[in-house]
Computed example of a mutant assay.
Amino acid sequence: MQTYKTNSEIFEQKAEILKALAHPVRLCIIQTLYHNGPTNVTDMHNCLDKPQSTISQHISKLKSANIIVGKRQGTEIIYSIKNDQIKEIIRILF
């Protein structure tokens, strides 16, 4: 049996990631980004069949948790998964 003696901050960071992902709409957003690559809110709205305001609220939570990032392209914002760690979590889940 392996015992982990490490800074508890690492476990807290991982728990925060999992908490941020622990909602069906946010999981769908991340899975959409994982499979389709960078996309805008409209494309996510079409996939989820939820009001755009609902999607935007969940996007805000994912951005706050440093899971996704948005880049402005003209009049729209294109969202993408911020790092490979999140991609690996989604790959394992689905």
Rank of each mutant, 00 (worst) to 15 (best):
I89Y: 14
V41A: 04
I10F: 07
P38A: 04
R72Q: 06
G70Y: 03
I55E: 05
Y79K: 09
I10Q: 02
S8C: 01
N7L: 03
Q2P: 13
E76H: 08
H35K: 14
L48M: 07
I89H: 01
K5T: 13
Q13R: 06
F11P: 00
I90V: 14
I10N: 02
S56T: 02
K71P: 02
K82A: 12
I59M: 01
Q2Y: 14
T6Y: 10
Q52M: 05
T32A: 10
P24W: 07
I78C: 08
T75F: 10
L21W: 08
Y4I: 15
I10M: 08
R72L: 05
A15D: 10
L27K: 07
A65K: 00
T32P: 13
T42D: 01
H58F: 01
S8Y: 09
A65V: 00
C47A: 09
K50P: 00
L21D: 01
N36A: 14
I67E: 07
Q57C: 04
S53N: 06
K50T: 07
I89S: 08
L48P: 04
A15P: 07
Y79Q: 05
M1Y: 06
P24F: 01
L21H: 03
D49T: 06
M44V: 08
E76I: 10
I78T: 07
I77M: 09
A65R: 03
T75Q: 03
L27H: 01
A15E: 06
T75M: 05
F94Q: 12
